[in-house]
Write a protein that binds this DNA or RNA. Structure first.
Lengths: 196, 196
DNA sequence: CCACATGTAGACAGACCTGTCTACATGCCT
DNA sequence: AGGCATGTAGACAGGTCTGTCTACATGTGG
């Protein structure tokens, strides 16, 4: 995708996304976003009156992009057909494995944002909660529609997914693979509760 | 504890701990640590040649303090006597509930540190991994010593614990309680795999 | 008794941060 | 023809950051 052909606002937002996600929000100055997006200061501040506004726009953009990828990655593995089957939850492990293998992977942008600016950028924590809420809903879609404890089970699975994300982010010897193995074991245990 | 009576190095370290944990590492400037610990700049830089050195010392201190609390909190609930029992894993939910209820709770310092400075402070990620490794070992101590999949099970449980921590940190309506409920459900599912 | 670690007080440098400002160009819609 | 959104170029202000510097005080161990 050729970024330089896009209108200024998109260019700024896409550039900020890559920098914020890769290096962190606090570590990325406005000047660097401006230089990298090939825009001038006036243009930037016309679109985003303050850095906090850009951070919020970044989170909204990230949410839309990640959710689309997440739903698609599940769909590519036949989540729709298998939904309700005991094994459908297990697809989460494969999907996470795909994400962790991305060289650009640096954890969940929302978990990171809460750690970095959760208390200082208004609306950041709310967006993080909303993001996780929607993630849980997609996970719930893998479970039998009539299951009474459906949402509770989906939330337990989401806990495992988030745990795997932070473990994979910490890096080290063979962390991403280990995180996926742990997650698979955990999801198997949860799926087994369906048969009782 | 009267901090002002301690030698300068301890005063700096304890002050930095509170500020780094409460507000974040990047958001806390050296000047603020210096002012709050009642020390001068020369004294500070004699003990910690750079901020990164202070960050590493903070992580080491935090690790020792948190692990001691964790082991103690489990012990207070009879973890030693119940170790190996199917229900021992469930103690983790109670222990996390105790932590989440602390007004100073702001997530796991190591997860936060990786998100904030994982790539820029040398040694931060390594310390985070070591911290989690030791946490897993304590969790493994709750499981039957002869269990073949002991470590794998402990790691799966640790994934749930970390997921609960980040969920509780995000705040919102009733997040800490929810995170504990989710964690309990997840640990029950894992404990059930012992009976098969 | 003197050497050294430990401490105090505060100025200073140089970098980077966010955000504002002036002055000018272009193209589109009415 | 005129008005307005959108764009460019770059100087500037005022703050915060990390880290260094000079100059002096105190107490303890060899």
């Amino acid at each position: 995708m050729d970024i330089s052909a896009l209108p200024a606002r998109e260019r700024i937002l896409l550039t900020a996304h890559d920098l914020f996600y890769a290096d962190g929000i606090r570590a990325t100055g406005i000047d660097r976003v401006i230089a990298a997006s090939g825009v001038t200061k006036v243009t930037f501040y016309r679109h985003f009156p303050s850095k906090d506004d850009l951070v919020r726009a970044f989170l909204d953009h990230r949410h839309a992009r990640w959710m689309a990828w997440f739903v698609d990655a599940l769909g590519r593995r036949g989540a729709h057909e298998r939904a309700g089957n005991a094994g459908a939850l297990l697809l989460l492990a494969d999907v996470m494995a795909e994400w962790f293998a991305d060289p650009a992977f640096r954890g969940c942008a929302f978990i990171n944002a809460v750690a970095e600016v959760g208390g200082s950028v208004e609306g950041a924590a709310e967006r993080a909660r909303e993001h996780k809420r929607e993630m849980v809903e997609v996970i719930a879609g893998l479970l039998p529609a009539a299951l009474p404890a459906r949402m509770a089970l989906a939330q337990a699975a989401a806990l495992g997914v988030d745990g795997a994300i932070v473990k994979a982010q910490m890096g080290g010897a063979a962390p991403a693979r280990e995180a996926v193995d742990d997650l698979r074991r955990l999801l198997e245990a949860l799926a087994a509760t369906l048969h009782r």
